[in-house]
Amino acid sequence: MNWALTNYERLLDLVWQHTWISGSAIALGFALALPVGWAAYAMKSSPHGAVRQLSGVTVSLSSVLYTIPSLPLFVIMPTILGLGWLNPINVLIALVIYAFAIMVRGVVDALNAVPPSVLDSAAACGFSRGQRAISVTLPLAGPVMLAALRVVSVSTVSLLSIGALVGVSNLGSLFTNGFNRNFPTEILTGVVLTVALALVFDLLLVAAGRLLMPWNSVVSAGGSA
């Protein structure tokens, strides 16, 4: 506790580093996955067999990305991007890849979970294609997308700490530093702060979900009769 207090300036800096890198990775991953996932979903009902296959290929390729272990990806990234070893953008982009990989499947699952009967009834009411996508499909896919985004958020915050091994400064630096100095308090502080940050992100997402999707948290009347 004393150690944390005397080093609060450094800790604050690491928390900030961790926040912006993981926060941007989550946001960018989601922003990229939404159109790609949507395209995969739309292709699935195409009359052309080849296009339908492309949809499946998109989803499988994105999940293969997720199987690449993190440390190797972190060290391959500088070579691919041609940036300096210590540039945080390397780790950021690697995390975007993971976020994207989980989220594409999440978006496709979310869109598939929208009840066809509701889409049908919206069309029958006279929603045009565009209107229906924006004001019916997207909001109704929201809850499942949010669930996937929460998984992305937690794992991104946790994965980033491995970036400390390649010298990118974040809360993970407390692990490498604490280990080298044989100082468990520093590591424990890092663990607590990382978990706390993941929790804060999660609470923010849940709160945003409540705000944007109020219908999702009401108690239903029960029974279908």
Binding site: S117, S121, A122, A124, L140, M213, W215
Partner: peptide
């Protein structure tokens, strides 16, 4: 329609 087909989010 059957099951009313209401928009659950409105």
């Amino acid at each position: 329609m059957q099951h009313a087909g209401l928009l659950p989010h409105r």
